[in-house]
């Protein structure tokens, strides 16, 4: 554990809590892609199957359970509790275009051809692209509420901090997880354009982010 990794995990947690609180307080999931949230729930489910097989640390176990619970709570709020506010019209990204290549890739590239390892690899690849329905939705409607952009900011910050964590781990313990690092870098690149818009529009005091 290093400071980048811890800060990254905290950013991830903050992002998820921001989104959950936004939906709960406003009693609405307008502007939120339910598809992205379903994909994230699938990411956590397929990655954290090792909760039942290996014990790493109390921190690891607790965080996994919290991420799983919060992601399912988010999906519940969007598709059940506040489903009448869900903007399915604009959440029109074709998820099969992500799932099919990701499933294919995880069968091609993995550390071991076991169900657990293939599912872990699937979760890593899927996480890299799971935000695309949300970014697509913002592009389609041309705007995002500032609270939604704060969510995306913390999610992107988490990814950037994980890269710092990998650089640190490579130099201090020789750790290098090729699958995680390559897809992590790809994932972070998706946020770069958004980061630029966030800093130039939202931070400078506009309530909504409108695309140019």
């Amino acid at each position: 554990m290093n400071v980048f990794r811890l800060a990254g995990d905290v950013s991830h947690l903050v992002a998820i809590i921001i989104l959950l609180l936004k939906i709960w307080r406003s009693r609405s999931c307008a502007g939120i892609s339910g598809k992205s949230q379903l994909l994230f729930a699938l990411v956590f489910t397929t990655r954290y199957l090792d909760l039942f097989t290996v014990y790493i640390s109390a921190y690891n176990t607790i965080m996994k359970v919290v991420f799983l619970a919060l992601s399912y709570a988010t999906v519940y709020l969007i598709y059940m509790r506040f489903r009448n506010t869900y903007d399915s019209e604009n959440d029109s990204f074709r998820v099969e275009f992500l799932l099919v290549p990701v499933i294919g890739l995880s069968f091609l590239e993995h550390y071991a051809f076991t169900p657990m390892e293939v599912l872990w690899t699937f979760s890593i690849f899927l996480e890299a692209v799971a935000i695309m329905p949300q970014l697509f939705m913002i592009t389609k409607t041309g705007e995002a509420e500032s609270i939604t952009t704060h969510y995306l900011f913390f999610l992107g910050l988490y990814r950037a901090l994980y890269i710092a964590n990998w650089v640190w781990r490579y130099h201090t313990e020789g750790f290098f997880d090729q699958i995680a690092v390559v897809s992590g870098v790809v994932q972070t690149i998706f946020y770069c354009d958004f980061f630029y818009l966030y800093v130039t529009k939202v931070v400078q005091g506009r309530s909504k982010m409108s695309l140019p």
């Binding site: 290996v54 640390s57 991420f67 071991a112 997880d177």
Partner: peptide
């Protein structure tokens, strides 16, 4: 089941 890769990151 220790043959699986130990993934210690979240």
């Amino acid at each position: 089941l220790q043959d699986t890769h130990p993934h210690d990151e979240l």
